[in-house]
Design a protein around this nucleic acid. Structure first.
Length: 646
RNA sequence: GGCGACGUAGCUCAGCUGGUUAGAGCGAACGGUUCAUACCCGUUAGGUCCGCGGUUCGAGUCCGCGCGUCGCUACCA
């Protein structure tokens, strides 16, 4: 069986509403899928919704709705939005479907049987909203760093041995340079993995919603662990023996879920289960709007349908073509590496220059000329070499762009052919040839028509409504094979041309500018995520509060600088009978030789923590110097190691 | 804090392994053309290629330092 080209968007969390960011991911996948279909390949384009998690259940309750009804409703919203915009996905998978649950449970069992999952106790704070565990030290005023409510949980849980998979993962990344794209994101993943991976708690207490842990029904599987498995579930794994013809897949997503989940956790899960890794994992950046990210919490979401309606109302193009206009603008503004500011201004410019002035006008003027100078039929005559070459070059450019997942560059290359055509028309001046009754006229007109027919094919994955509309005006029906695209035979002499009909009416930019200025919301507050501040010390504390802190004298027996940090030092100390490892940020000021043998004061009953992948069992006390550098505290006289300080 | 990226014409950005007069699109100015959706084509922009130092016969392109933006980060207790 032939290998299928499988491409995925993330499954969208039902706690949000569809916005332009989602539409961008949909677009790149849709365009790539369409391109591969045009080439005659089997294609599987998967999208869907992520519907498990405590947060979903609580959102349903808040809405006074049954959870099933709630997710059905929101999932349908997403689906309707994508249908409305004409995205041609092949499968829409929901994590509440049995096929997904079965795959999740099966993968869990496999990993457990192989020893990659173990049971342990977790006790600590849990952020319900973000569905993550929160370190005590990260709490801000009793809330999570994101300001969400936290609750104390103490439970037995299942952990995924992610810590063991860093090395094989790195090996795979190094052996496959295009596995993670773009390169700048890949670097982030490499440094993330190099910091050392930690085992991940992958279960939660069963709230009556989610996928139960096989053999431990009191638990459900952590939403992220669960959600990622949709990709393989949609191929039919584990039951369909043909699933491997649909795997591996190309995964596209926005950058925020790249590093931790798609580029690390997911490949690690597959690796642990001895399943093939995705062929490529690719992240795009965000659209920003004004100064900040376009997001629900910022209140500056543009609904994708809103953009389409804009072109219908303001430019007056048909609904189908307005969708194409949206697609073009998304592609042209595609933030591949960084983020892109997505503005009405930019949108209007791309629409006018690429679609109205270049593409639409080139079609229009060419058709008019064929009517005026050739009686409305494609004349005979060989297409001139420079036209054939320009077509071939543009086609090649589009192919290269799609091979590199650069939908933006594919658009550029296809529009480039139109630009060439406009220059060619000016240079060859068919009106002058006609006047002079120059025999070259036929060749020139036919070349123009062929360039347009070819351009239609090249833009087709990106502009699926525009391409057939162009062909219809050119008097062509059906579409050529990709391989045939650009061939002279695809446009026989004598083909009857339709009456030209403007496809994309120009936008009146001046009028728009006035409107936008009028309706523009106040510039979104320039906000920087507040760095989590150190908890403020209260003005006074009770004596028992103080007594909670156990301070002891310790003697440093070993000290070692940490690679990759100019401040951190790893210390081995003795508290009399007991020795401990403590991490301390003092390496800038003190050298190991200054420290060994020295007595210091430590907080002895501080909960252990991991710093730079090292356990720290306590905290070294130091005063802040004016420049912020540490000044170590030590007893003024030799004290017994381990003696209490109070 | 660490790691990483970026800083090129008014704007958005290309410039691979260093090599003659540094490019594209948009905008602007001027000119041309008339087939066309007031569109298209051409010319122009005197760009310190962020700054300073270095390697080299030669650097936007490599190295160091500095400044400025930005990204990632499970950790400076």
């Amino acid at each position: 069986m032939a290998q299928t080209f499988t491409i995925t968007t993330p499954i969208y969390y039902v706690n949000s509403v569809p916005h332009v960011g989602h539409a961008l991911t949909m677009l790149v996948c849709d365009a790539e899928a369409a391109y591969h279909r045009l080439r005659g390949e089997e294609v599987l384009f998967i999208t869907g919704t992520d519907e498990n998690g405590l947060k979903v259940k609580e959102a349903a309750e808040k809405a006074g709705e049954d959870a099933h009804a709630f997710v059905d409703r929101i999932s349908a919203d997403f689906r309707r939005t994508w249908d409305d915009l004409g995205f041609q996905y092949d499968d829409f998978i929901r994590t509440t479907e049995p096929r997904h649950a079965r795959a999740v449970q099966r993968l869990f069992e496999i990993l457990r049987d192989k020893g990659h999952i173990y049971q342990d106790k977790y006790e600590g704070w849990y952020d319900v909203s973000a569905e993550t565990f929160v370190r005590e030290s990260d709490l801000v005023d009793g809330k999570s760093p994101d300001g969400n409510e936290v609750r104390w949980v103490s439970e037995d849980n299942w952990f995924f041995r992610l810590s063991a998979l860093g090395e094989p993962l790195m090996a795979h990344i190094e052996a496959n340079p295009d596995f993670l794209l773009p390169a700048s994101r890949k670097n982030e993943v490499v440094s993330f993995i190099n910091q050392g991976l930690r085992d991940l708690c992958i279960t939660r207490t069963n709230p009556g919603w989610g996928i139960p842990v096989p053999g431990d029904e009191g638990k459900v599987i952590y939403v992220w662990f669960d959600a990622l498995i949709n990709y393989i579930a949609a191929t039919g794994w584990p039951d369909d023996p043909n699933w491997q013809t649909k795997w591996p897949a190309v995964h596209w997503m926005a950058k925020e879920i790249f590093t931790r989940f798609h580029a690390t956790l997911w490949p690690a899960m597959l690796m642990a289960a001895d399943l093939p890794l995705p062929s490529q994992v690719i992240a795009h950046g965000w659209f920003t709007f004004g100064k900040s990210k376009m997001s629900k919490s910022q209140g500056n979401v543009i609904a994708p349908g809103e953009l389409r309606d804009f072109f219908v109302t303001e430019a007056g193009c048909s609904a189908d073509l307005a969708v194409d206009a949206v697609r073009l603008c998304l592609a042209r503004c595609l933030p591949y590496e960084g983020d892109t500011n997505f503005t009405w201004d930019e949108v209007a410019k791309h629409y006018n220059s690429d679609l109205a002035n270049d593409l639409g006008n080139a079609l229009n003027r060419s058709l008019t000329m064929i009517h005026k100078f050739a009686g409305g039929r494609v004349p005979g005559g060989a297409v001139e070499p420079e036209v054939a070459e320009a077509i071939a070059a543009a086609k090649h450019g589009v192919e290269e762009a799609y091979a590199a997942h650069r939908v933006d560059q594919a658009a550029e290359s296809a529009i480039g052919l139109i630009r060439f055509l406009n220059k060619y028309i000016d240079t060859r001046a068919p009106w002058a040839l006609a006047k002079a009754e120059d025999p070259a006229l036929g060749s020139v007109l036919r070349g123009m028509a062929l360039a347009l027919a070819s351009a239609a094919g090249l833009v087709e994955p990106l502009l699926p409504a525009t391409a057939p509309a162009m062909r219809a005006q050119l008097g062509l029906s059906g579409r050529p094979e990709w391989a045939q695209l650009g061939a002279e035979e695809t446009l026989p002499a004598g083909t009857e041309i339709a009456q030209p009909q403007p496809l994309f009416p120009r936008l009146d930019v001046k009028k728009l500018t006035a409107q936008v200025e009028e309706s523009a919301p106040a510039e979104p507050k320039p906000k920087k995520e507040p760095k989590k501040p150190m908890p403020e010390a209260p003005a006074q504390i009770e004596f028992p509060d103080f007594m909670k802190v156990q301070l002891k004298v310790a003697r440093i027996v070993e000290a070692e600088r940490m690679e990759g940090s100019d401040k951190m030092m790893k210390l081995q100390v003795t508290l009399g009978g007991e020795s401990r490892q403590i991490m301390a940020g003092i390496a800038k000021k003190y050298a190991p030789v200054d420290l060994i043998g020295r007595q210091v004061v430590v907080v002895a009953n501080l909960k252990p923590a991991r710093l730079m992948g090292q356990e720290s069992q306590g905290m070294l006390l130091a005063a802040d110097d004016v420049d912020g550098s540490p000044i170590l505290l030590e007893p003024s006289d030799e004290a017994p190691d381990g003696s209490l300080v109070h």
